[in-house]
Structure formats: C-alpha cells, structure tokens
C-alpha cells in the first residue's frame, strides 16, 4: 500500500510515540507518586497534617494543570534545551510531557489513596505502625487497583498529548499525522496514523484494566 520509506517512517513513528509515552509516564510517576503521597498525608485529615506543605503542593499542581498543554509545550522549550540540549524532538517532548503529567498523576494518586478505608489505617496505627509503614504497606497496597486504573488513564492521556507535541515537531505518530494530513493533504497516511493511535490506546486500556482486575482480591 505504502512505499517502503513511508512504512519505515510509520514504524519509527510508533516507536517514538511509545518511547515518549512510556518515558513520560515513568518520569511522571517518579515525581507524581511522591507528590500524591505528600498531598495525601499532609492534608488536614491525613497522617501528618501540614497545611503549609499541602497548600504549596496544591497551588503548584493547580497552576501547572491550568496551563493548556500546547502553551506549556512552548513555555518549556528553554527548559528542554537546558535539560536535553534541544528544544525539539522526542526527548525535548518528554520534558514537557513529564511536566504536564506530574501534577495530573499526583492528583490521581491523591484521590486513589484517599479512598482507602480509614478503619484499616486506624488498625495499622493501633498496631504501632508509623507513617512510612502505613503509606508503604497499607495505602499503596489497599489502593493498588485504583492506582493501576488511574495509571491506565494517565498513559492514555499522555499518549494523546504526544500527538499534540507532535504538532510542534516532537516526532512520533502525531507528528506524521500533522505533517501528512494537515500540511501535505495525504489523507491515507493520516488515517493510518490515527488508526494506530486508536489501537495503541485500546491496548493500553485493555492491558491496564485486565491487570487491575487480576490483582484485585476484594472479590469473593
């Protein structure tokens, strides 16, 4: 159907998209998970209430989340240059994708952890568990299903954002779709990339949900 060049470009596009999505999600969790945990425990009903810390994280999360991603992409270009040496390409996109993902992930982690039954936390405290043990062995364990479901949502969202980053020359399937579909009007290539994005999204959803279900022990 396509020339070998186009085919290899699409394959490379898939690789870049997956790379950007997974790397940003990974980095997003490296920073977002601790931030979500801190939001949970420093809140007023948390394990270690700390209004100053909570407010600080809360404000940071809200500011970053209120900036439209397209604007964030542009704002972050100097930062990307500083960190990865370039203002464009997949690695540069990872910087902005991560920055957008961190507060989003932190909020989802916060909501997952806050769902954990306060009775179980109380029981752990009555056994002499400290804050670290409760976070590590109670909150993260009991919220596992919800955390995985949310990670699936985060991956899907980041996948969508990579396409947007593609419009600014990040590479990946989004980049191809914009270049061929918008600038050159080669619709067949655009449709293929869109279908591939949909397939990737479905795979992430299906695997994530199956994993969440598989690991949930609450069903009898």
């Amino acid at each position: 159907m396509f020339s070998p060049e186009v085919t290899s470009m699409i394959i490379q596009g898939i690789g870049e998209t997956l790379y950007m999505t997974l790397a940003s999600a990974f980095l997003g969790y490296v920073f977002g998970l601790p931030m979500g945990i801190l939001l949970t425990i420093s809140d007023k009903d948390g394990l270690k209430p700390n209004p100053v810390l909570y407010k600080l994280l809360d404000v940071i999360a809200n500011i970053v989340r209120s900036i439209p991603f397209l604007i964030l992409l542009i704002l972050v270009i100097p930062l990307s240059r500083l960190i990865v040496g370039k203002g464009y390409g997949p690695n540069a996109a990872i910087v902005s994708l991560t920055l957008a993902a961190v507060p989003f992930i932190a909020r989802m982690v916060e909501s997952s952890l806050k769902e954990v039954d306060t009775g179980v936390i109380e029981a752990a405290r009555s056994m002499g568990a400290g804050t670290f043990t409760i976070v590590w062995k109670v909150l993260l364990v009991e919220a596992r299903t919800s955390l995985i479901v949310n990670a699936t949502i985060a991956l899907g969202t980041i996948l969508g954002y990579t396409a947007m980053a593609g419009a600014l020359g990040a590479g990946g399937l989004g980049d191809i779709a914009v270049r061929y579909g918008y600038h050159r009007r080669v619709e067949s290539i655009m449709i293929v990339t869109v279908v591939l994005l949909i397939v990737l999204f479905q795979i992430i959803q299906t695997v994530g949900m199956a994993l969440a279900n598989r690991l949930d022990k609450r069903k009898s």
């Binding site: 009775g119 029981a123 009555s126 056994m127």
Partner: peptide
C-alpha cells in the same frame, strides 16, 4: 508506637487488609 504493640485492638468492621491474604494480615504486626 512501641507501647501500642502491647495493646491489641479489634473493631466492629474488622478493618483487615482486603488485598492481603489471611496469613499476611496476621503477619502485619
């Protein structure tokens, strides 16, 4: 926290770890 290990507590709604086996629940303390 050390003292609390000398004081066991049980509750109306049991408050077990739902994602852990019976054995692991008992191992928790």
């Amino acid at each position: 926290r050390k003292q609390r290990q000398d004081i066991g507590m049980i509750f109306q709604h049991f408050n077990l770890l739902m994602q852990k086996s019976v054995l692991e629940n008992v191992c928790f303390p």
